[in-house]
Each structure stands twice: as C-alpha cells, then as structure tokens.
Amino acid sequence: TRVETATETAWISLVTALHLVLGLSAVLGLLLLRWQFPAHYRRLRHALW
C-alpha cells in the first residue's frame, strides 16, 4: 500500500505540473497572438462576444 500511495502522489504531481505547463503555454500563446495580431484579435473577440 505504501508503494501504491507513492505512485499515486507521483501521478498527481505529474498531472498538476502538466496542467500548469499547459495553462501557462495557453496564456503565453494568447498574449503572443494579441501582441502580434491586434486587429485580428479584436475582430476575433468581437465575433466571440
């Protein structure tokens, strides 16, 4: 049971790290898009909202 718990903890930390990385890359990508294509971003936002 001790090994299982350790594996579970490792998986949880791995998944958390993955989610953090994905979230950060998504935010960075959005910022980059907004910085590179302001007109396109505004049009996209206008279409979405």
Rank of each mutant, 00 (worst) to 15 (best):
A39Y: 10
Q36H: 15
W49G: 06
P38E: 13
R34Y: 07
L22V: 13
A47T: 10
L33M: 12
L18Q: 03
H40Y: 09
L24C: 09
T9M: 13
R43C: 10
H40V: 08
G23Q: 06
R2P: 12
L14Y: 05
G29M: 13
R2T: 14
L48C: 09
A10M: 04
I12S: 04
L31Q: 08
A10R: 10
T1R: 10
I12H: 06
A17Y: 01
R45V: 08
L44Y: 03
L30W: 07
W35E: 12
V15T: 07
L20E: 04
Y41R: 05
A6W: 03
G23P: 08
L28T: 04
R45E: 05
R2D: 13
G29C: 11
A39G: 15
A39K: 09
R42D: 14
A26S: 10
H46P: 01
V27M: 14
V21E: 04
S25Y: 04
L48P: 00
W49K: 06
R42T: 14
L20G: 08
T9L: 12
R34P: 06
A6C: 08
H19R: 00
S25K: 06
T5Y: 04
E4A: 11
R45K: 15
L28A: 04
L22P: 05
L32T: 09
I12L: 12
G29Q: 00
Q36N: 11
L20H: 04
T7I: 13
F37C: 09
W11R: 02
H19C: 00
A39D: 12
L48T: 07
H40E: 09
L22I: 12
G23D: 07
L32K: 04
L22Y: 01
L18W: 09
L24A: 09
Q36D: 02
L18T: 04
G29N: 02
L28V: 02
L48F: 05
L14P: 00
L48K: 00
A26C: 13
A17E: 02
W49E: 05
S25G: 06
W35Y: 15
L30V: 12
E4R: 10
T9R: 14
L33S: 01
L22F: 06
W35D: 03
L18D: 05
T9D: 07
T1M: 14
E8W: 02
R34I: 05
L48A: 06
L32E: 08
R34G: 04
R43Q: 10
L44N: 05
I12C: 03
V27K: 02
E8Y: 05
L31I: 13
W49C: 06
V21C: 12
